[in-house]
């Protein structure tokens, strides 16, 4: 089984409470079965949308597959601590991928 392609869309980080690039990099480092790609990659399996604050104003592109919405302190609306964020995102990606397939 190949790597799961995770399309990553980050907000513009105008007044960030978290650093999306660092968190997404940590996600990649946490699980080597994930391949992080640009959100415009047509072959992505999952779309990860990250907002660096709760306003979550990032533009949401159309995507028919699983979409995971992360803010500085939540994943799909559920509270997650900063320390747990990378692992929790990985778990969510794997869960979404499994449910989608």
């Amino acid at each position: 089984m190949g790597k799961i392609k995770v399309g990553v869309k980050l907000c513009g980080h105008c007044n960030p409470l978290a650093d999306g690039l660092s968190i997404v990099s940590a996600v990649g480092a946490t699980h080597n079965g994930l391949e992080l790609v640009h959100w415009e990659d047509p072959d992505k399996d999952v779309l990860l949308i990250f907002s660096a604050c709760p306003s979550n104003c990032v533009s949401k592109p159309d995507f028919s597959g699983p979409i995971i919405i992360v803010t500085d302190s939540t994943i799909n609306g559920a509270k997650v601590s900063a320390q747990q964020m990378p692992e929790a995102i990985v778990e969510m990606v794997l869960a979404e991928r499994n449910s989608d397939s």
């Binding site: 980050l10 907000c11 513009g12 980080h13």
Partner: peptide, 8 residues
């Protein structure tokens, strides 16, 4: 820059 392109 992926961390700013959404705005720019």
């Amino acid at each position: 820059d992926p961390s700013t392109e959404d705005l720019v």
